[in-house]
Design a protein around this nucleic acid. Sequence first.
DNA 1: GTCTATACATGGATAGAC
DNA 2: GTCTATCCATGTATAGAC
Lengths: 214, 214
Amino acid sequence: MSPQAGAGTREKLLDGAVRTLTEHGIAKTSARTVAAAAGVNQALVFYHFGSVDELLSEACRYATEQRVGRYRERLAAISSLSELLAFGREMHEVEREAGHVAVLGQLLAGAQTQPRLAAATAAGLSLWVAEVEKVLVRVLASTPLGEFADPVGLARAVAASFVGIELYEGVDQDGALRALDALEQLGAVVAALDDLGPVAQRAVRHRLRRATRG
Amino acid sequence: MSPQAGAGTREKLLDGAVRTLTEHGIAKTSARTVAAAAGVNQALVFYHFGSVDELLSEACRYATEQRVGRYRERLAAISSLSELLAFGREMHEVEREAGHVAVLGQLLAGAQTQPRLAAATAAGLSLWVAEVEKVLVRVLASTPLGEFADPVGLARAVAASFVGIELYEGVDQDGALRALDALEQLGAVVAALDDLGPVAQRAVRHRLRRATRG
DNA sequence: GTCTATACATGGATAGAC
DNA sequence: GTCTATCCATGTATAGAC
């Protein structure tokens, strides 16, 4: 069941930390529960990581790099907003299943009051943000929005919202699904603006220029 | 410092729970820490609420009703998307200051693995969702989007994203501000579509109808 | 590197005095 | 309704044997 039964203790603990966070939440994640999940002795947490916080911080990096790496190539191939939306939805299902986004949610909650964790969580999120940002720059360029939207900010909004919706799904599955559907629909609307005829395009761009300080 | 020093013990505990959640997070919220924040004896948590979970559940309802009530009238007066955006931003500042959204974030994290808390948190969020939904129905009706967007789903997306961004702000303040700016800008763009001339309006609507199953 | 044992702190929960 | 005292489980962290 554990990824590698013969893996090094460090890896077992990192993996145990991730699993404990998803299954029991930050509130019940401790050296003991993590060690139990990892199948190793509790004292090894302190031998290898010095403290529980440090273990969680490294687990955050470990888990996020693993995940982002898994999607990097596919993200690089996305060239339209609707593709991005479809991908986001699919990734949501996969990661939800495995509880990987939930980990970020738990760490984010814990990080609010623990500087060490905060730094690690910010770093973990920034891995996602960097990828999303690259895609957004590419995808929005061909859209009337390219001129007015800020991909840097939007990437952060997307990542944070993704985590928020993930947490929301934990308490209201139907609501979360409906939320995702609504966003998908909204995205399709924006994507459609891309395909307006030249006259309408010009009218839209003109109106947007007036409305924003772009 | 405490809201009412002479308040009943129940209220002191509810208030102490909220303050403890914001200041120490769900991971360090216990009968003892809450009682200390409330300035009452630890045993009273169990006398009045039976368990810590139950206290937190009631605190969630208590805090959320208080907050939503405070904004209900103003929300009812909002009649355009840009007004809604401005209001959201202002509310964000105020609630951030007091840490009230953070409470929902902490509870949401804790709720992932505690059914009792999950129900309470879902109920709390639904108070916000209901208000946002009413505004969205009203505001989107006059927009090309009214025909294609789902206010029920969007309200949930907005509420969940708000919490997500709030948590994100705890680990990356600059990033969160930029995210909010980007969303505000995006909202302004959508709002601008509202003011297109009749010809462009028709072109947009036509294109959107083709693009969605609306 | 890993385990046992152990210290000491914190947390959940109850009994009983006031 | 509130407080003191207490029990027992859990959690952090270290020392020392293997």
